[in-house]
Design a protein around this nucleic acid. Sequence first.
DNA 1: TAGATTGTTAATCGATTAACAATC
DNA 2: TAGATTGTTAATCGATTAACAATC
Lengths: 210, 210
Amino acid sequence: MESKLEFTPTYERLPTYLNLGEQALRQNQAFISGTEIANALDRSSIQVRKDLAFAGLKGIPKRGYEIKQFVSGLRKFLGWDKDKKAFLIGVGNLGKAIILHDEFADCGLRITDIFDSDKKKIGKKVGALKITDIAKLENRLSTVKPDIAILTLSYSADVQTLCTTLAEHGIKGIWNFTNQKLVLKENVAVYNADFTAGLAVLYAHINKQT
Amino acid sequence: MESKLEFTPTYERLPTYLNLGEQALRQNQAFISGTEIANALDRSSIQVRKDLAFAGLKGIPKRGYEIKQFVSGLRKFLGWDKDKKAFLIGVGNLGKAIILHDEFADCGLRITDIFDSDKKKIGKKVGALKITDIAKLENRLSTVKPDIAILTLSYSADVQTLCTTLAEHGIKGIWNFTNQKLVLKENVAVYNADFTAGLAVLYAHINKQT
DNA sequence: TAGATTGTTAATCGATTAACAATC
DNA sequence: TAGATTGTTAATCGATTAACAATC
């Protein structure tokens, strides 16, 4: 990421807590305790409590957190209660997977437009969305004014130029699935979703064990 | 992850360094310096040097790291020089994206078998691989003895039972793309690739700026 | 030689864990 | 009441950054 954000590990864990909370809600549970969450996720209860306190949640000693409050509070803290408009650029397999992954709607991510430069793809539908020619990107940016761009293009594409265009139109955040480093002004947030980082950590674990 | 691994952030950064190194190699550069890498990735050179030292790389003062040595040394340290056999389970869009992503071969990840439970998919080809009936998983596990399992099934599937089977057949690592928590013995490494974690961090950054 | 870069030790910073009082 | 759980302050641990000697 460009700028530093404190409590990043906490932010990363919160969705897993919410996930459990929503499960408990579906089962009509009334309360959920930090200990319960910790056990389910194989973490320490101190960490769970600290994280939840950071997210502004209040619990009741001996009982835990009131489920409805827990879920709505956490969703609000994560910003998943408010829709954010997103453009997805590059409709390959990964792009399709993201477009068709319903669960993102639950995170407030509303993909409104999808783009590709491949003439054969333009006009075709993916789920409810029609693939737009990348040439029309600027036009759509001015009209729709999306908050977020999701970059799922193949690695050879000129991602940097694209980013400059996005920044000029006031994009707030970029979810970058390409392995290229994006150079952007301070006020655009970038999250690099690098698959190979995961592989590196997984391999390290494997080698540690043997 | 289950067990603790030190230097996780370092492991996560190493692939980005390697990426730059391979680029430099293609351009016939002879040396690459920590400063150069730091500038390209918007990081501090101290961190880059520390990371590289951790990976066992030796540099030459005033020059930097000899490119060929840098690339091969880093690849070896990451374990990307040796093939690891992997089974991919759940051939949806994300599964397809991973199967067809050539770059993983470069990380020593060799997907040998792909499985799905959907009768309509079984027998169909994705790239060079034919989709196998999940019922034949155990059989194939005994024969092929893969190191890694990649879980890209839809969330409703019974992932836990699957994991037990995988563990019984000596799987070493699991790359988990489902949002379910896997309960496994100590000697199986798990890396949870949770997309919503990225969204949580991205949103936090966006909110911080405004 | 002078400047740039590595490599390492020490200092700082942030995140996790421990300890424990408050409380339902 | 006793036991369990929250919430917070202090202690520890790990990761990052600073400082600087060594060196090509």
